[in-house]
């Protein structure tokens, strides 16, 4: 057994377990955040909607860990409750755009022809608009509400997924294994579902997980502008908007939901990075 061999073996092991640890750590954190969001109503120390003006704008401490807002509602409870609205609408949004964009992209890539050209020009139009401006326009036409904010953001975000899946589908459809599947008597649906979808799922899932953070920001952004969740719904963006005017006198009102957004986005982005490392090892070497 030579020295050299031993060294290479150890090197590989270290790199591998490192990715594993990162996946467990950030994946665990992301799942923890999701669990908090899922069980939010049971975790809040106070009722997030109960107003008590005698306790308005209490600073952190004294039984209210993050203080209270101007109606005397407990900030911690509202941040926990708000995670449900913000994170779940972001997840819903990502799921919608992945499915819609993916379906359009696979169809275009597989089918080609004039319909493909038409749909891709449509997606170009969506991509040409500055995203947030277009989302604001759509959201204001649809009027407020979280669901409408999700719809507005879905309108502007699906083309990215359509692009990714289209290019992948176009690349794969000319590979011999698709011809071989056809020669094995599989119909178009079967080929798309069993051979194309699994083979392009990797990069799409990575993009989707990385997008969760961005979508949380955008949903919170729309709510901040008053186009998302309507008051009194606890939502991070609208909570920040409420605290905007009191930044100097009672900063905890804007800082607690702000930090919540910051931490959640970081956690999901890092989790997405590690998912990419696992699913797409080629990228990691660069």
């Amino acid at each position: 057994m030579s020295m050299e061999e031993k060294i290479t073996v150890r090197k590989q092991k270290v790199v591998k377990s490192h990715t594993r640890q990162k996946l467990f750590f950030f994946g665990g954190l992301a799942i923890a955040v999701l669990l908090v969001a899922a069980f939010a109503p049971y975790l809040t120390p106070y009722d997030p909607y109960e107003q008590d003006l005698s306790k308005a704008l209490l600073p952190p401490g004294n039984g209210h860990l993050l203080g209270t807002d101007r109606y005397g509602r407990d900030m911690l409870s509202r941040v926990i409750m708000g995670s449900q609205t913000t994170i779940f609408s972001a997840l819903l949004l990502v799921v919608i755009i992945t499915i819609v964009g993916g379906a359009v992209g696979i169809f275009c890539g597989w089918h080609g022809g004039k319909l493909d050209a038409f749909l891709m020009r449509v997606s170009d139009i969506f991509l040409a608009f500055p995203g947030m401006v277009f989302a604001i326009a759509v959201a204001s036409v649809l009027s407020g509400g979280v669901i409408n904010a999700v719809v507005a953001l879905a309108c502007i975000s699906w083309p990215k997924y359509a692009r990714i899946t289209r290019s992948q589908a176009m690349m794969i459809k000319h590979l011999p294994y698709i011809s071989a599947a056809k020669l094995s008597g599989s119909g178009t649906w079967k080929i798309v579902w069993k051979h194309i979808v699994p083979n392009i799922a990797g990069p799409v899932i990575v993009t989707a997980v990385l997008d969760i953070g961005t979508m949380i920001m955008e949903i919170a952004g729309l709510s901040f502008l008053g186009l998302g969740a309507a008051p009194p719904t606890a939502e991070w963006g609208s909570m920040m908007s409420n605290g905007r005017s009191m930044l100097q006198t009672s900063p905890w009102v804007i800082l607690s939901p702000g930090c919540a957004i910051f931490l959640t986005v970081i956690i999901f982005n890092l989790a997405g990075d590690t998912v990419r490392d696992v699913l797409d090892p080629k990228q990691r070497k660069r």
Binding site: P176, S179, G185
Partner: peptide
């Protein structure tokens, strides 16, 4: 039936050889 030029590309990389043979 046809046998292709590049053997590795003619099997779906995400499925086993057995799956590919059984498909038809």
């Amino acid at each position: 039936q046809m046998v292709f030029q590049t053997p590795q590309d003619s099997f779906d990389p995400r499925r086993t050889l057995g799956d590919g043979i059984m498909e038809s």
